[in-house]
């Protein structure tokens, strides 16, 4: 069963309906891109998967968002567990007001991770052979450090940031460039070991080079994580997406494998958007 299933999802801000009739299973282990013109509800949809809409007033959610079969809008749902399972990258990176190191260690610490748990996790990570990260010098035992050091290094590598920050881990994260901050946000989200990563236009605030780096990491990560990216750049969707959802005026018009939706859309509106007639 897929991690994320949306059932008859309808979301209103006060009297305005932002989303209606959303039904979709988001495929696991793939990168799903949500595309569509601005103001069509992409970000609302994304945030609804992590209950981040709780921050806003007068939001009404009807229907279900199921994560691993459980409706997250159930009053009895454990929001903290949910959010641990589902990571999120905002549009503008926001470094937490602490050092680079602590930005990564923050999530695991808040969830009360123990040294033993870290050791177990590192063993698992080693067996995943996800990126060259797992055979880094610290990981191979060359530089002994605390278990947390290893964990921080691992996630920084996963986000493709390690080489740039390895000598300045204790500096405040706010000193990083915006592109680096965004990769830090990725590493920070990964550090709580989610199954799903949500990203809201993660490259829109970045220069092209930094954007490319983020895209590269996403392509690496999508084998092990379910990734959902909101983007308004069609070309980006073509570059990275396996699965595409096209939204228009609060409705999910069409969804399917990227190849099909982007090259042979069935709906007229999708066709118009993909061909660049509307944007």
């Amino acid at each position: 069963m897929p991690h994320i299933r949306l059932r008859d999802l309808e979301i209103r801000y006060g009297k305005n309906t932002a989303l209606r009739g959303i039904n979709v299973d988001i495929p696991d282990g793939q990168l799903t891109a949500i595309i569509g013109p601005s103001g069509c509800g992409k970000t609302t949809l994304l945030k609804s998967i992590n209950r981040l809409l709780d921050l806003y007033e007068e939001v009404q959610v009807r229907g279900e968002v199921q994560i691993d079969g459980a409706n997250i809008y159930d009053p009895k749902a454990d929001v903290l567990e949910l959010r641990k399972k589902v990571g999120f990258m905002p549009q503008r990176p926001f470094p937490l007001p602490m050092s680079i190191y602590d930005n990564i260690a923050f999530g695991p610490r808040m969830h009360g991770i123990t040294g033993e748990q870290i050791r177990v996790r590192i063993q698992q990570l080693k067996s995943q052979h996800l990126v060259e990260a797992v055979v880094g010098p610290a990981m191979s035992g060359a530089a002994p450090g605390s278990p947390m050091d290893l964990l921080v290094e691992h996630y920084l590598r996963l986000a493709g940031l390690w080489d740039e920050v390895r000598d300045r881990l204790r500096e405040p994260a706010a000193k990083l460039s915006v592109g680096q901050q965004q990769r830090l946000a990725l590493a920070r989200a990964l550090a709580v070991e989610p199954d799903v990563i949500l990203a809201d236009e993660p490259t829109s605030a970045l220069d092209p080079i930094s954007a490319k780096l983020i895209e590269k990491q996403f392509r690496l990560l999508k084998a092990t994580y379910t990734i959902v990216v909101v983007t308004h750049v069609l070309r980006q969707a073509r570059r990275i997406a396996d699965y595409v959802m096209f939204m228009y005026l609060g409705e999910l018009i069409e969804h399917g494998p990227a190849q099909q939706v982007l090259t042979a859309p069935r709906d007229e509106r999708t066709k118009a958007y993909v061909s660049g007639e509307i944007s």
């Binding site: 945030k47 992590n50 981040l52 709780d54 921050l55 903290l80 567990e81 949910l82 959010r83 641990k84 589902v86 990571g87 999120f88 905002p90 926001f94 937490l96 923050f106 999530g107 808040m110 969830h111 946000a185 920070r188 989200a189 709580v192 949500l198």
Partner: peptide
Amino acid sequence: RETALALGL
């Protein structure tokens, strides 16, 4: 807030 909340805080 979103960033931190999304970490499960």
